[in-house]
Design a binder for these strands. Structure first.
Lengths: 230, 230
DNA sequence: CTGCATCCGCAGGGATACTG
DNA sequence: CAGTATCCCTGCGGATGCAG
């Protein structure tokens, strides 16, 4: 007889993905993998190095980052590349389709920011803050906020440019800006989203703002109202 | 002395969520839970019963469905309710914030449908097909497709109404329609997305179409082009 | 019919240490 | 700096049984 195993019937592989014809769940099969979303987020503003990714994604370990970069490359979201000389360092960059996920970050940001359980005061990376701001401002009464803001977050420069309905984000220092704001991402978030005068003033103390201060204030007003909605 | 365990240092709970200030990752903390997205999807067109949810979500088991319904209720996405008499049956329905995730399905659908790895021919529920179609049609050259279509999928009636930029979906039979299409969701998907004449003809054989046939053909043409993009 | 509780096997996740 | 190797543990998935 040698009855193999009565209790263990032949098991199916039991993939942890959805594998449906539904386009939304298929998207989730990709971005729903652990750490996939933060990785894509950190690449949305341009190519980055392995170590920089690891440092700006809070809590990820090297082996998991390796795994995720591998599966996202296999899925066509990103690719490995080497920066042109004299840099010649290996980086990861989004493919064209990977970049097309930007509206997805907008939609997720808009929905997530309105979550009853969302606490905007938790730490977040520079890219995370920029994309969150981008998602929260669109459609708001931010009409008179055309122009460029220079943001220095964690010591790195970024440019925020509102051009009509469009918000353009980029790494690097802009040529011209109406106001320049420097500080840690979570401090800036505390200032923009802070409820109560004291919280905002406390945050403002840790920021350095130069240029058109009135413009900065109107910028901040856009987010104070938007964070409490539902 | 009594050295407890040298190899096992005090472990942190190691939550599998992101828990950041970033709004997008916070959204993922909710919809990224296993089966959360299909559950929300099946509720987007109105309240449903436990058993119906279980039947239309392929591969989920009762205990997991219970778990997910519980965590989504705790998260404010959905609530338990009882249908008014004489039905008086327990159902699950989305909260206002839960319904606000509809644009998220649009964004995910648009991105997922363009995935190089997406196979639209896999089985999918009626709701999944309707939301996938909704996400794929918007912005397309579907201007002359105003009006209502009656869709009978898996024996249940739905209405698809295009009103300007807006696509409205609902369960139930519409009062008036330009064309009525009946069949299984994956067969209809095969007809709409099918590449090659034969595939479309084979699918068409298994569908029953009544009313304005020309309208139905123009409707189908919207999706054949959209599915191959990147 | 509508769920909830429990047991078990397994794959993926997380921390740490290590190699090129 | 850029990953790989190892080990442990949790959560998922499936089956089953039970209560209202």
């Amino acid at each position: 007889m040698t009855s193999e195993k009565l209790t263990t019937a032949p098991r199916k592989p039991a993939s942890r993905r959805y594998d449906e014809g539904c386009a939304a769940t298929h998207a989730m099969d990709i971005i729903g993998q652990r750490w996939a979303l933060p990785v894509m987020r950190e690449l949305m503003l341009g190519p980055r190095r392995f170590g920089d990714l690891k440092n700006s994604i809070n809590g990820i370990s090297a082996n998991l980052l390796t795994q995720r970069l591998g599966s996202l490359e296999a899925g066509g979201v990103l690719r490995r590349a080497t920066l042109p000389p004299p840099a010649s360092v290996p980086v990861y960059e989004l493919t064209r389709w990977g970049h097309a996920a930007l509206p997805l970050f907008d939609a997720m940001g808009q929905w997530g920011a309105r979550s009853p359980g969302h606490d905007h005061r938790r730490p977040l990376s520079a890219t995370a803050l920029l994309l969150t701001l981008r998602s929260m401002i669109d459609g708001a009464a931010a009409a008179p906020l055309e122009g460029t803001i220079r943001l220095t977050l964690d010591g790195e420069d970024f440019s925020w440019t509102k051009d009509g309905e469009d918000i353009r984000l980029a790494r690097g220092t802009p040529d011209r800006w109406r106001v320049s704001i420097a500080g840690a991402p979570d401090v800036l978030a505390g200032w923009l989203f802070g409820e109560g005068e004291e919280a905002m003033l406390a945050a403002a103390d840790q920021l350095s703002v130069e240029g058109d201060l009135d413009f900065a204030m109107r910028f901040a007003d856009c987010f104070g109202a938007a964070s409490s909605d539902f």
